[in-house]
Design a protein around this nucleic acid. Structure first.
Length: 298
DNA sequence: CCTCAAGACCGGCTGC
DNA sequence: TGCAGCCGGTCTTGA
């Protein structure tokens, strides 16, 4: 089926099967969506909008969303954490979150949407030049918000630093030192978007494994050196995944059937055994499945 | 007013 | 074949 992708402008590839688990769009995947999409949509004017499933439109009302977005020109596209933000004329912003199974795809015709997603098409945005920006979502965990720039989206306003922004080390450590985290586990803390942007369940597990730190440890027991190490590993792992994710999308477009290379570098998430040979443990932290090695992570 | 844990939201998939 | 339960990012709810 991958050969079919050759003629499609696939913007996001998700649902890579991994021992019963799935990869969901976290920072690296959303970054690749942004890079793939920006050249296609910047400068385009929205000439129409159809909302098939109203549940995904969070702001404003569905009727207002479709009416207000029509006629706006997309001037810029950026990523903030796991959110995609389309900057528009007249100080509007379209804020999109892909949830777990969101797909943003730019096509000439809705028939080009992969079959798997076509029955989960929820929002159709017509661009000038007769192309379509489609939002599909199997589990409907995603969201679209059309906002005025003067009223920033709260989740983004209070979001922690981007992993590579200037001052991230200081900001990360300051936020991690907040009273609310002292008796929480380190994994829960780094998964929270207010501590650092873009880290989800998979990358939290991987970064803590790379840091040799037990995800169950409480934040107030994590030394300053260890906090630095965690941030460094978050940066390295996310960057590597961004780079590999780009390769993956390119492979799909080329119809080579490759599933991307990032999963080949996973050390812990979804695994049964550690590289050291020990059986991995799983524990539920904040309702999320957490993998770690009792031998390597202390 | 605040914090915060738990529940809700979903449907493809697995396993019994 | 049927169906309960798993999975998880974010928002909502209620204590």
């Amino acid at each position: 089926m991958y050969t079919n992708f050759e003629k499609y402008d696939i913007i996001l590839i998700i649902l890579q099967k991994l021992k019963g688990l799935i990869t969901i769009p976290e920072l690296p995947e959303v970054e690749n969506v942004k890079r793939s999409l920006e050249n296609k949509v910047i400068g385009k004017t929205i000439v129409g909008c159809s909302v098939i499933n109203e549940k995904l439109i969070k702001k404003p009302t569905v009727q207002e969303f479709a009416k207000d977005i029509t006629g706006l020109k997309i001037t810029y596209l950026y990523r903030r954490g796991k959110y995609l933000v389309f900057t528009m004329d007249f100080s509007y912003e379209l804020v999109v979150h892909l949830g777990m199974t969101g797909l943003l795809i730019h096509v000439n015709n809705i028939n080009e949407i992969p079959q798997k997603y076509s029955k989960h098409l929820h929002v159709l945005i017509q661009l000038d030049g007769n192309t379509l920006l489609c939002y599909c979502d199997i589990r409907k965990f995603g969201s679209l918000r059309l906002l005025r720039q003067i009223n920033p989206y709260e989740a983004i306003a209070k979001m922690g630093p981007e992993p590579w922004e200037i001052g991230v080390r200081k900001s990360f450590k300051t936020r991690l030192s907040a009273k609310k985290w002292t008796n929480k586990t380190i994994k829960e803390a780094i998964m929270n978007q207010e501590v650092i942007a873009g880290v989800g369940n998979i990358y939290a597990s991987e970064a803590l494994y790379a840091s040799r730190i037990d995800p169950n440890r409480l934040v107030n027991k994590i030394t300053d050196v260890e906090r630095e190490l965690i941030l460094t590993n978050i940066q390295d792992i996310l960057q590597k995944s961004i780079d590999l994710g780009g390769t993956s999308i390119s492979d799909y477009l080329n119809g080579e059937g490759k599933k991307g290379q990032f999963q080949n570098y996973l050390k812990i998430y979804g695994k049964k055994k550690c590289e050291c040979g020990a059986d991995l443990k799983t524990v539920e932290i904040k309702g999320r499945n957490t993998f770690y090695c009792q031998n390597c992570q202390k």
